[in-house]
Design a protein around this nucleic acid. Structure first.
Lengths: 199, 199, 199, 199
DNA sequence: CTATAAGCGAGACGGTACGTCGCGTCTTGTA
DNA sequence: TACAAGACGCGACGTACCGTCTCGCTTATAG
C-alpha cells in the first residue's frame, strides 16, 4: 500500500525547481497570470507537467512561490534600513519602498494573484502567509512604538491602522484605477495619519 | 455601413435575456463565479451559446449584468431613504445599507467579479461604470454637503474621502479576511471620520 | 387551419430565383459543393434564408437545380445534332459531347452531388430524374435502332449496354482517378462495343 | 527536430484504438456515415475527442480505417481460396466473394466513404490505397494468366479490363439503383467477358 | 381602389458539431 | 525514485451552419 505518495523533498532537483520558478514568473510578467498555464510553464522550463504537480498545487501557487521568493530576497537586502525617530517619515519610506520599489513593475502579478485567490482558498492562505501578513507585521511593530511615543492615539488597534493604509493601496490596485507614484503613497499616509494622531 | 455584425437590440428576445441573467446569477451564487461557464448558463437557461455570445462578451459580463440589474432594482426602492442632517449617521446608514443589506449574501459574487476583472479590462470598466462608480457618486454628494456644513475638512477631495471608507470594505473582502457586520461598517466609518473632521 | 402552407409558385420572384441559382452554382464551382452552405448562398445572393428553404429542400437541391438547368439549356442547343448511320461514330460523338463538352469543367460539381446523394435519398432521386435518367434515355433509343440494324447483339438489354459505357465514365470520376479526354471516351466506347457486337 | 507535434505511435493505447474503431464502424452501419460525428464516436467509445484527432484526420478516416481493417482480417482467411483453371468461374467467384460476401451488408458504408471522398482528397487517397487498389491488384494477376492462356485478348490492358467489371458494380452502388445479388454479379462478368475474349 | 395576404430581406433563436486548449492523472523509459 | 515526455479522459472554449421563427416592407391579386 503506497502511503499517500508524498514526495521526498530531499531528492528534489534544485535546477528544475529554479527553471520552473523562472519560467512561471517570466510568463506572468509578460502576459499576465491569466495566460499562464501549467502546460506553458512545463514547456518553457523544459520540464514534465508531473514534476510541477509534484511540488505545487496550482499555477497560482507556482507564480506566488516564484514571486514571493524574489521579493524576500530583495527585502532582505533592504529592510535593515534603520528606522528613524520620525514616525511619519518612516511610514512614508516604508510604504514607498514596499509598494513602489519592491513590488514596482510587477504590481499586475500581485493583482492577478489576488484575483485568483478569490476562487482558490489555498492560494488565498498562501498569499496571506507569505506576502501580506509579513508586510503587516513589519509595520505593526513601528506603529506600536509610535503609540508608546504618543504619536498615534493609544485606543487604536495597530492592525486596523495598517488596514487604513494598505486598504487604500489595494483599493487603487484592484478596484479604482489611478497612478501608483510617490505623490499617491504620501497622500495615503497623510490621510491615514490625520485619523490616527491623538486629538 | 456597419462592417462587423452588430446585432439589433430591438430584435432581442426579452424572455431569453431574462432566462440567461437568471441562470447566470443563480449559478454564480450557488457555486461561485469560477465554476460558471457559458456552456452551463446556456444549458440551464435552455438557450443556444450563440445567443449569449451575441449579447455579452464573457461570462463575467453576463453575471455582472444580471447582478447589477438586480441591485439597481433594489436600490430604486430604497434610495429615496431621506438623508438626515446627521452626517455620521447618514454615512453609517448608507454603508450599512449598501454593503450589508444590498450586497449582503452575494458578496462573493462581487469578489469573483473583481477577481476576474484583474485580467479582463472590459469587465473592469463595466464594473466601475455600473457598480462602483454610481455608489461613489451617491456618497460624494453627501460628503460635499458635509463640507459645506463644516463637518468635514474643506481641503479634502471628496473622492479620496470615499476611498478611505470603501477601501476598507474592499480590502477586507478581497485581501484580509474578517467579518462583514454592523460593528465592522461602523468602525470603518468611525476610523475614516477621525481623519476627515476639521481640526 | 392553415393548409400545410404550400407556397404559391405563381408569386415566386424570378430575379430572386435566378440570384440564388447563380450564387449556388458559382460557389459550388469555386470551392466545391462541400463548402457551399445555405447561409453562404443567402448572403451571396442577397436573399433571406427563408426564401431558399421555401423553394428547395437542401443545398444539394439548389446546386443540382441550378446546374441541371444550365445543362438543359446547353443541350437544347445541341441535341438536334442529327445522328448518322454509323452507330460507333454516333456513340462516340454522344459520349464526347455529353461528358467532355457539356459537363466539362464542372465535373467536380457532379461528383459532389453524387457524393451528397449517398446520404440524401431525395437528392439521389432528383439527380436521376433530372440528369442521369434523361441521358440514358437519349442513348437507349439509338441503341435499339442499332439492334434493329444488326450492329448490336439482340439479346442485350439496351440499359445494361448503356451501363457498360457510363459505368466506366462514372467509375473514373468517382472511384479511380484518370484523365477525362477524348482518348478516354473513345476507349470507353471501343471496349464496350467489343462486347455488344453480335458474334 | 520535429517541428509540428507528431505523436509517437509506440505510446498509442491499443484498447483505446480498438474502442474507437469499433464505435465508429458500429455507428456508420447503424445510421450511415453522414450521421457519424467525431463527438459521437468519442462519447460511444468513452474517449476524449483529442485522442481521436491525434490519430485520425477526419471521421471518414476513422470509419475507413476500422472497416478496412475488418475487411483485411476477413480476406486473410479467405483469399487462399485456390483458383481453378476456369477463368470465367474464377472471376465470378472472386466478384461474388468480394462484392457480395465480404462487403455484403455494409455496402452503404462504402458508398458513404466514396461520397465523402469526393470532397476530401486525403480520404480519397486512403480509400484507393487500402481498399480499391488492393482489390484491383488481386484480380489483375488472374487476368494476366488468362491472357497467357489465350482466354482474354492479349491487346487489352488488364486494368482497363478490371475497370470494365468493377465500374459496373460501383455504378450500381453509387449512381443507378438496383439489386446486388448473384444474378447481377454474374451478369456483370458475362457482359464484360463478351468484350474481353479474343475474337 | 383599397386591404389583405403572400413573398421577401434580415437575422435572432435553440441546437449540434466542429476543432482547440488546458486540466490533472497516468504510463513509459532514462539516469 | 525523480524526472522529461506526452497520451489519456474530460470539460469548456468560441465558431459555423442548421432549420424554424418573427419582424417590417413591398407587391399583386380579390373583395
Amino acid at each position: 500500500m503506497s502511503p499517500s505518495h508524498t514526495p521526498d523533498p530531499a531528492r528534489r532537483s534544485p535546477q528544475t525547481t529554479a527553471a520552473i520558478r523562472e519560467a512561471a514568473l517570466a510568463m506572468a510578467r509578460e502576459s499576465g497570470l491569466a495566460k499562464v498555464s501549467i502546460e506553458g510553464i512545463a514547456a518553457r522550463a523544459g520540464v514534465g507537467k508531473r514534476t510541477i504537480y509534484r511540488w505545487w498545487p496550482s499555477k497560482g501557487a507556482v507564480v506566488l512561490d516564484a514571486w514571493a521568493q524574489r521579493l524576500e530576497d530583495r527585502l532582505h537586502k533592504r529592510l535593515q534600513s534603520a528606522q528613524s525617530d520620525d514616525f511619519e517619515a518612516d511610514l512614508k519610506q516604508t510604504v514607498k519602498e514596499s509598494w513602489l520599489e519592491v513590488i514596482g513593475d510587477s504590481r499586475s502579478v500581485l493583482a492577478g494573484l489576488i484575483g485568483e485567490a478569490q476562487h482558490d482558498p489555498d492560494l488565498a492562505i498562501e498569499l496571506r502567509d507569505r506576502l501580506i501578513g509579513p508586510a503587516r507585521d513589519r509595520v505593526a511593530a513601528r506603529i506600536r512604538r509610535a503609540q508608546d511615543e504618543g504619536q498615534v492615539a493609544p485606543d487604536i488597534d495597530p492592525y486596523r491602522a495598517i488596514d487604513l493604509i494598505y486598504a487604500q493601496l489595494y483599493y487603487r490596485l484592484l478596484v479604482a484605477p489611478g497612478p501608483h507614484d510617490e505623490a499617491f503613497t504620501e497622500s495615503v499616509v497623510d490621510l491615514a495619519l490625520r485619523g490616527l494622531r491623538p486629538r
